Simulated assay, not measured.
Amino acid sequence: MAYKDYYDVLGVSRSASDADVKSAYRKLAKTYHPDKNAGDEKAAERFKEIGEAYAVLSDPEKRKLYDQYGHAGQVPPGAYPGGAGGFQGGDFGGFDPGQFSDFFQQMFGGRGGFAGAQGGFRNPSGQQVNIEDLLGGLGGAGQSRRFVQNVEGELQVTLEEAYSGSDEVINVDGKRLALRVPAGTRDGARLRLAGQGPGGGDVLLTIRVLEDARFELDGDHLTTTVDVPAPVAALGGDVKVRTLGGQIGHLSVPPGSSGGRRMRLRGQGWPRKDGSKGDLYVRLNLTVPGDLSEREKELYRQLRELRPG
């Protein structure tokens, strides 16, 4: 299996800062998000690659190991049973089990998963190594040892899913696990599935909330933009506003409103732990129809004559 270089996947250099990595990821995730590329298998695969690359390069320890050893399948000699300097009974041959555990950290299938979950790992000689063999067969002849192993990964959710909460299913070592992402979950939040990892370890998930072109999140408040016809902005009137939760609200636009004006819908922002919500700010975008009738054009000409400049 050929692996792509994670730096190439995100289009950044090996000396890229954390901010550069995050910025590149967000731009690419927005471009290739499934919501914008329904039915496009190539875009879905690209989106998965982007998530895998970011999962490693955004984590200082994982990035350090990746820079040193490459992909998880390219484990240093001696990291597998039977290799030079490998495990003999309970001896780890000088290799730190804490580092060894990072090679089991994979990206969850779909919007998250574990890299290598489809087909396992390969040892330095290129032979396929099953994760069950690694976790259950590291003992000497005639004995079986199973190491309790915590595994980590990232789960990507849309802004709307993070807002309302969502039910997800992930695959860990061939086992399907159901979980609930609570309403109001923030980017970077951690979920723990106790005892669901290989050998009875825990599955630790970091939630990554994708950006949404329709809404901006700042603290507990959301901002969206709504189109307002020029006559409504001039004379006042109601316009419909779609909230992040999918509801349709009505906003009363005062007469003489200008483009860029911000108005507030209280209690329509991000959910808080106490059950309340922040506010939704609505930015007005004045619009003029591109297909004016002759009567409409005449009225605009009269308006221009009445208010020149």
Score class of each variant (00 low, 15 high):
M1Y: 12
M1C: 07
V21N: 03
S23P: 02
K27D: 13
P34F: 07
N37P: 07
D40C: 06
D40P: 04
K42D: 11
A53F: 06
L65E: 04
Y69N: 15
Q74C: 07
Y80L: 11
A84F: 12
G86H: 07
G86L: 05
Q88E: 12
Q88H: 01
G93S: 01
G94Q: 00
M107G: 13
F108S: 09
G109V: 13
G110P: 04
G119Y: 08
G126K: 01
Q127S: 07
I131M: 11
D133Q: 14
G139Q: 00
G140V: 05
G142S: 12
Q143G: 03
Q143L: 14
S144F: 06
R145I: 02
V148Y: 01
Q149K: 05
N150Y: 00
V151K: 00
E152H: 15
E154A: 15
L155H: 07
Q156A: 14
Q156K: 11
G174K: 11
A178V: 02
R180Y: 06
G184K: 04
T185F: 08
D187T: 04
L191F: 04
G199I: 02
D202E: 03
L204W: 12
T206I: 10
E211F: 00
D212P: 04
E216C: 04
L217H: 08
G219Y: 09
D220Y: 10
V226R: 11
P231Q: 13
A233R: 01
L235M: 10
D238T: 12
Q247F: 05
I248S: 14
H250Q: 14
L251I: 13
L251A: 15
P255K: 08
P255H: 14
P255Y: 08
G259C: 04
R262H: 02
M263E: 09
R266E: 15
Q268D: 06
W270D: 11
D274G: 04
D274W: 00
G278Q: 03
D279N: 15
V282T: 03
L284I: 04
T287C: 09
T287K: 10
P289S: 11
S293D: 02
Y300T: 01
Q302N: 10
